[in-house]
């Protein structure tokens, strides 16, 4: 059921049955290392190229998610996935190995939440019993595609962000299975305040995150303290600061201690990640690892996941276009 203009209310709230995440060396040195199901200590994951490594990391996350749910590939009715590469190749090749209905999606770093919302929509309406959704990002493939060659010596400013090498996968099942339910989702609109600095994507995404969170709270009819945690994907320190100020000016009270950023949680303060982690694997790995663990332990009862995407294209940036932002939100609650 549609609530307001952008919020999908799931009458038969489907379950987030289980999640799994895989990461690499930088993530293994971060504070959330313990929440990863699998860590690669080789950026190539034993493959010939970084792109193939990215695919392997996604495949690993999906494989572990299926194992945790005691499911076979054949039990999955639809697979919804996305990544940051041109033609979302990591997702396409992962889907090739699954042999089920597949929807490839792109929402930059908001993809994880976009996938989760779509999976929940399909399952809640009975278009399948179980859906799998996954996203992945790889530091080296993202650097190469969006910035410069990896070994090129260029000085980055402190507002820049570090693309996480990580994947997260989740299994969404019909109501009746599992402890964590997906109650509703708010699909964001593209918001563009004219930020055009590719080394400050947090500032480009913050207006979209604020717009989606405010829309969600209004259309659902709750205050922000309804949620134990509101977790954005990858605003970084700069984007988070901008978002808090925008909330303040909009007159929406947000508790600083419950407004967290996955990109900020994934790495320690001493790690060279500038403003924080980013990439569409960042939120997926933190949400399906760290946050899902906390929900299963009962330490978080209501979580609003806000996937934030900077719709950056190196081509349109060079043609002097700005960087539009988008954010989608999904509410997870304990049954």
């Amino acid at each position: 059921m549609l609530k307001g203009r952008q919020t999908w209310w799931f009458e038969n709230a489907p379950s987030l049955l289980c999640g799994a995440c895989a990461g690499a060396e930088m993530e293994s040195k971060g504070p959330l290392a313990g929440s990863f199901d699998y860590l690669y200590y080789d950026m190539r994951a034993g493959r010939e190229s970084f792109e193939k490594a990215e695919q392997s990391i996604m495949e690993k996350a999906v494989e572990i998610a299926l194992q945790k749910a005691h499911l076979q590939k054949e039990d999955i009715d639809v697979f919804i996935a996305g990544d940051l590469l041109n033609q979302i190749t990591s997702s396409n090749f992962t889907a090739r190995g699954l042999g089920c209905a597949y929807l490839g999606i792109f929402g930059a770093c908001s993809t994880a939440v976009e996938g989760l919302a779509l999976a929940a929509l399909l399952i809640s309406h009975g278009y399948g019993q179980r859906a799998a959704t996954a996203t992945v990002s790889h530091n080296a493939t993202a650097e190469r595609q969006f910035r410069y060659p990896n070994e090129y010596g260029v000085q980055k400013p402190s507002a820049a962000q570090f693309t996480a090498t990580a994947a997260g996968a989740a299994i969404v099942a019909a109501a009746g299975e599992g402890q964590t339910k997906i109650t509703c989702a708010t699909i964001g609109k593209v918001v563009d305040f004219g930020v055009s600095d590719p080394y400050n994507m947090g500032a480009a995404m913050a207006p979209a995150a604020v717009d989606t969170v405010i829309t969600h709270l209004q259309e659902r009819g709750v205050a922000s303290d309804y949620y134990d945690v509101i977790a954005t994907g990858d605003l970084g320190k700069v984007g988070q600061g901008c978002a808090l100020e925008l909330f303040n000016r909009a007159g929406v009270a947000i508790k600083r201690s419950s407004f967290l950023d996955c990109g900020g949680l994934l790495y320690g303060g001493e790690q060279p990640v500038f403003s924080g982690g980013s990439g569409c694997g960042c939120l997926a790995a933190v949400a399906y690892g760290h946050f899902l663990n906390l929900m299963q332990k009962g330490q978080i009862k209501r979580l609003l996941l806000v996937g934030t995407g900077a719709l950056l294209s190196p081509l349109t940036y060079q043609q002097k276009e700005s960087i539009p932002g988008i954010a989608h939100a999904v509410a997870l609650e304990c049954r």
Binding site: P157, S158, A159, V195, N200, A203, K237, V238, G241, C242, E245, L246
Partner: peptide
């Protein structure tokens, strides 16, 4: 101004 204030 908001971006300027938050950008190191």
């Amino acid at each position: 101004q908001i971006v300027k204030d938050n950008e190191p």
